[in-house]
Design a binder for these strands. Structure first.
Ligand SMILES: [Mn+2]
Ligand SMILES: [Mn+2]
Ligand SMILES: [Zn+2]
Ligand SMILES: [Zn+2]
Lengths: 126, 126
DNA sequence: TATTTAATGCGACTTTATTGCATTAATATG
DNA sequence: CATATTAATGCAATAAAGTCGCATTAAATA
């Protein structure tokens, strides 16, 4: 299954690149100039996530947020995102925090996915 | 609004106490001997969470998991749970990890809630 | 025992996300 | 360029998780 370069994907990726924070479906749709179907948006986003192009973060609100990968070592066998995301409760912005976190698991435990989210107020809103 | 001691709450709290892992609505309902309405279960759980009796964790699956508070200093002004939870992708168990995490936020940022979840395989399942 | 109102049950509803299927369009091939 | 192949899309239906309004029940208190 080779990937194809489509207009929808291009536009969505551009939006994610230009955004300095993670976006959920709603926020992304609001930024679209073209009309793209909801199902397509989700499919595109999850495809990006599967391909390691974006992070997928689950918010306190249970919604899926997507952020373009920056400073992620995609050459590594395991593309990892062991950093927290911060969600402002007032302005809604979701951003990546710089520090990579090292969590020590009990013996015999293995990691498949990391999801770290802190909610609070950003410097503009507190 | 003073809290009342009801049978539903008692039973749900017992189940959470006896469980060594976080439970979502489904898992909890399966353990009930009495039949309690879905809305009530959610209301009870969120009440517990508001009162600092249990943690509420959002999984990768977007579902709400609840775990009885252990080793949480409830005397502190801010009842904090800055620890990760681990969810086994095979057996489904969600458990609290011991280490408290210290995340450094950018200047001017304040924390209201912490949600850390690692998915993977536990020692029994890997 | 009577009064007050927190908690519950039920059903309707909302929100978020997924899936099946027919159609479209990106890529490859001659 | 014309044609074949199938990934990607649009649409509608569906699923799943959680919330809300409101009438009823039952804890607490007097
Ligand atoms: Mn990345
Ligand atoms: Mn606690
Ligand atoms: Zn803000
Ligand atoms: Zn397991």
């Amino acid at each position: 299954m080779k990937r194809r370069k489509t207009q929808s994907q291009e536009e969505i990726l551009e939006i994610l690149k230009d955004s300095n924070s993670a976006l959920n479906h709603d926020m992304l749709q609001a930024k679209l100039t073209t009309k793209i179907d909801r199902a397509t948006i989700y499919r595109v986003l999850n495809r990006f996530s599967d391909d390691g192009l974006v992070h997928k973060v689950i918010g306190d609100d249970g919604k899926q947020y997507f952020a373009f990968c920056l400073n992620c070592d995609k050459e590594k066998k395991q593309h990892s995102h062991n950093h927290f995301h911060f969600k402002c409760l007032k302005c809604g912005k979701v951003e990546c925090l710089k520090n990579e976190i090292d969590v020590s698991l009990p013996k015999g435990y293995t990691t498949e996915a990391f999801n770290g989210l802190i909610s609070g107020y950003c410097s503009n809103c507190s």
